[in-house]
Computed example of a mutant assay.
Amino acid sequence: MLIYLCLSSHGYGHAARQAAIFSELYRLRPDWQYVVSSVVDYEFLNLAFNGIPIIHRRIKWDIGTVQDNALTVDIEKTLYELNNFYLKLPEILIEESDWIKSQNNNPLIIGDIPPSASRLASLLTAPLIWMGNFGWDNIYSSYDNRFSEYISNISDDYSKGNILIRFPFSMNMNWKIKEHKVGLVVSQKKILPNKFLANLESIKKKFILISLGGMGFKLSKETFSKWRDFHFLINRENDINDCSDIENVSLLPRSLCLIDVMPYCYRVITKPGFSTFCEAISCNLGIHVVERKYFSEAQFLIEGLKKYGSFRLLSEESFYNGNWQLDKELRNEHNSIIKSDGALSSAEAVISYIEEI
């Protein structure tokens, strides 16, 4: 069996959660062939899918939204890129379906969550499993009527899947197909390198993790001087304008993911993001969440955070000004418990589906 993942190229979150699921799939079915198809940063894909014998295909299956940074969306550029994408898609589908056929292995298509995966599955007469907490029809429906035709076509694509594995914090995704609900999708933590761990242990301050995902952000080093009693862990060099001389900031080694350091942290500052929320909640880590405009998934993520986690809400202005409320008590409104078994449950659902067909 060839498991072919059409992976959204919009940020890192889709890749992070699929890596957790593929890790479980590979553990349970090491005899299968695994393909990850995306233009997400190759270094991140190698880190996330480390230990899994992946075949990489560098194909862009969706546009998502065009963003200059992690918090804003450029509606005009998104519309322009969507038009260009669908002009090129027929040729991409033909070339990639030919490559898949050349592998001489029965394919199963997984889409997270590019609607074009439906067209690839149709060309191959292959089964299709969706995984996600939103569809691009949900996101574009909050934009103006120039997106109407795209929304209609995308919804039609989603309705052709065989099953939806519905993640937590989900939007309506009313595609009229069979569904399987799962818990938080979380990767296994790696052991910290000895040198980095020793460095953390030598710092007698509470650690604050800052990450706004693959789109990045820019902070001035002056913002950190407001919080000298804390030490900040950041995973991207370009997220600060020169961090080399900031005494209370450390960069994460490139071999580590966010979840690897979360058990050592006091709180995390982040945008509304599925994978970071799942990982932080599973680690009982307080979340300071920065508002995110023009991306309707954010409201559903925050509703889920209120249900399952502890948090503070920050405006975009407060984030960039360094008014991070680290001296404030967390809001704790949750009265529900959610399991962190979404990766295993998703993998088992895939295997069960294949065994049934």
Rank of each mutant, 00 (worst) to 15 (best):
N46R: 13
P253V: 06
V261P: 03
R58W: 05
S9Q: 00
K176N: 15
I269R: 06
E303R: 14
K181D: 02
L344V: 02
V36C: 05
F169A: 03
Y264G: 10
V185Y: 09
V261H: 05
Y143F: 12
F85L: 03
E43C: 14
S211T: 12
Y308I: 12
I92K: 02
S23G: 08
Q299A: 14
L256R: 06
S275R: 01
Y353L: 15
K221H: 07
I354L: 15
M262W: 07
G273V: 07
D112L: 00
V35T: 12
P90D: 03
H334F: 13
A121P: 11
S118P: 00
H288T: 09
P30I: 06
Y308H: 12
N194S: 14
S275A: 11
S315K: 05
D144Y: 12
N323L: 05
W136C: 03
F22M: 09
L28K: 04
N84C: 11
K307I: 05
A280M: 04
K190E: 09
T65N: 07
K204L: 13
D239G: 00
I54E: 02
N153C: 11
V249H: 01
E355R: 13
R146N: 08
N235K: 11
G132D: 00
N174E: 12
N332G: 08
P53L: 15
E81L: 03
G11C: 05
D239C: 03
N50R: 15
S220W: 04
R254Y: 14
E291A: 14
R166Y: 09
N194E: 13
L344H: 02
D229S: 11
L5S: 04
G214M: 01
F224R: 09
G64D: 01
H180C: 13
I163N: 09
S37M: 14
I163S: 06
M173E: 09
E149A: 08
F300A: 15
K271M: 10
G13R: 01
N332R: 15
S152H: 02
I94V: 13
G132Q: 00
H10K: 00
F232D: 00
D137I: 05
V73S: 04
F22G: 02
G213E: 03
G286T: 14
H334E: 01
I3R: 10
L212C: 07
Q67C: 04
I52P: 11
I163K: 15
K189C: 06
D327I: 01
S97T: 08
N235A: 13
D62M: 05
E96C: 00
W227A: 05
L128N: 07
K339E: 14
V268R: 03
T223F: 06
L93A: 01
I338R: 01
K190T: 06
A298N: 11
